[in-house]
Amino acid sequence: MNVDLQRVSVRIAGEYLVRDLSLHVAAGEVVGLVGPNGCGKSTTLGCVYRTLRPAAGAVLLDGEDLRTVSLRHSARQLAALTQDGHVEFDFTVSEVVAMGRLPHQHALGRHDEHDRAICDRALHRVDAAHLARRSYLTLSGGEKQRVQIARALAQQPRVLVLDEPTNHLDVRHQLEMLSLVRRLGITVLMALHDLNLAAAWCHRLYVLDGGHIVASGPPTDVLTPELLTGVFGVRAHIVSHPATGAPQLLFDSPADAVAQPAAAAAQ
């Protein structure tokens, strides 16, 4: 399923958080959104998973304008991992995952065998089947994140939108999370803070700064020393991953970034 943002602008309290932003995610593609804090990543994702309404522009799923369909309808096509942190009430893991079936159920509809099988599969896919009967509140941050992914998968979405899916995860779970996302085979749009993870796991990247897209393309083309200095204000060396060939960044410390050129000039 294709995702298109066409000249989307979001204004909150009179200020543009995102302005005239257009992007395209092709079916089956894993696309990353990167940029410094406050650049508009979460705002952009919010327009796609519909917690924010663009002041102008349109978001299309396979050409269908989201403004013209109900929340329930889009929830059957698109699932999201948001930044909602706090869950009130002591749900079990399987109850949390079962909520993913909600957009497919009627108000009095029962959670039947079919739903249960889908939820079990979703928990298996994130390697969390053993947690099913646990209380969600007692899970570690990483386990919670995986359960939320399972909940999103239980929606049987064709598009997955992830806001910082590797937050709170240790390095092994970060890698497992992103390799799972790649293996799903569905369209994925995600915001990532870690540029090395973005470079290793995304087909394409969009770089946001001040609510605008400043660069886009495959990681190798996008992540250049010039862009990193201009957008993130850091100096980095770009090396190729010895095994996968993906671009990986080695950062200079901020002090070096200023001091080195001066030292070089002095010599």
């Binding site: 998973y49 519909r50 059957r76 699932a79 999201a80 909602d84 869950v87 909520m99």
Partner: peptide, 10 residues
């Protein structure tokens, strides 16, 4: 689950 997650659930 929170307002945002609720909205993504329709």
């Amino acid at each position: 689950m929170g307002d945002q997650t609720a909205m993504t659930l329709g």
